[in-house]
C-alpha cells in the first residue's frame, strides 16, 4: 500500500547539496545554476500565486528574483537557507509589483476612492516567506500518495474544503480511510518540518 511508504528519498538527500550547488554556480558552473532553478522554480511560482499575481506578472517577478540571486550568488553566506532567502526576495518583489500597480491606479483620480481602503485582505498571505518556504520544502519530500491526498483536501480552498465523499471519489479510495490517511500524512509533514532546513 503506497500510503505506508510516506516519506520518499528524504534519507538519501545529502544535506549539503544546495550549498554545494550555490558554490559551484558562483564559481561558473552553469549546470549547477540550472539545478538550483529546477529545484526552486516551483517555490517561487507558489509565492507569486499566494500573492495572486497573474501569469505574466508572476513570470516577471520570478525572473527578477533569479537575477537578484545571480547578483548575490558569490555573497550568499548561508546557502543552507537559500529557500528562505529566495522566498523572502520573491515576496518583496511581489509586494513591490503590487504597490506599483496600486500607485499607478491611484494616479487616476477616479480610482483613488476605490483604493483608500488599502489593500484587500485577500492580497495578504497568511504565512511569512520563511514559513512558506519551509512548508513547501517539507511537502516536496512527502510520498506521491500523501501529496495527492493533501492536494485534494486543500484544493478549491477559497470555496471551503471539499467534502470527504468528493475527495474519496477523486482518489478512488474508501471514504472511511480518508480521515486516517489525512492524519498520517499530516503527521509525516510535521516530522519533515521538524527536521527543518532540509
Amino acid at each position: 500500500m503506497s500510503a505506508d511508504n510516506v516519506v520518499e528519498d528524504a534519507e538519501n538527500l545529502p544535506d549539503d547539496l544546495v550549498p554545494r550547488l550555490v558554490r559551484a554556480a558562483a564559481g561558473g558552473d552553469a549546470a549547477a545554476w540550472g539545478q538550483l532553478v529546477d529545484r526552486f522554480s516551483g517555490l517561487l511560482w507558489s509565492i507569486c500565486r499566494a500573492h495572486r499575481l497573474a501569469d505574466q506578472d508572476a513570470a516577471d517577478v520570478v525572473q527578477l528574483t533569479w537575477l537578484r540571486m545571480l547578483e548575490h550568488v558569490d555573497r550568499i553566506r548561508d546557502p543552507e537557507r537559500l529557500a528562505g532567502w529566495l522566498a523572502t526576495t520573491c515576496r518583496r518583489e511581489c509586494q513591490a509589483l503590487l504597490r506599483k500597480s496600486r500607485s499607478s491606479l491611484s494616479a487616476e483620480p477616479e480610482q483613488v476612492d476605490r483604493l483608500t481602503g488599502g489593500g484587500s485582505p485577500a492580497d495578504e498571505p497568511l504565512l511569512t516567506a520563511e514559513e512558506h518556504a519551509a512548508l513547501w520544502q517539507a511537502f516536496q519530500l512527502l510520498s506521491d500518495w500523501c501529496k495527492r491526498v493533501l492536494r485534494e483536501l486543500v484544493v478549491d480552498a477559497e470555496d471551503g474544503p471539499p467534502s470527504y465523499r468528493l475527495v474519496a471519489a477523486r482518489l478512488q479510495t474508501p471514504v472511511g480511510s480518508l480521515g486516517p490517511t489525512r492524519a498520517r500524512c499530516l503527521r509525516q509533514l510535521r516530522k519533515l518540518l521538524d527536521r527543518g532546513g532540509i
Partner: peptide, 26 residues
C-alpha cells in the same frame, strides 16, 4: 491544512519557459 492551501494555491506548475529564462540568465 489551511497553510498548505496557501502554499499549494491553484497547484499550477510554473511554465517551462520561466525556468528556461532563469537558466539563460546565468
Amino acid at each position: 491544512l489551511a497553510a498548505l492551501g496557501e502554499v499549494l494555491g491553484t497547484s499550477q506548475s510554473p511554465p517551462p519557459w520561466s525556468a528556461e529564462l532563469a537558466k539563460a540568465s546565468y
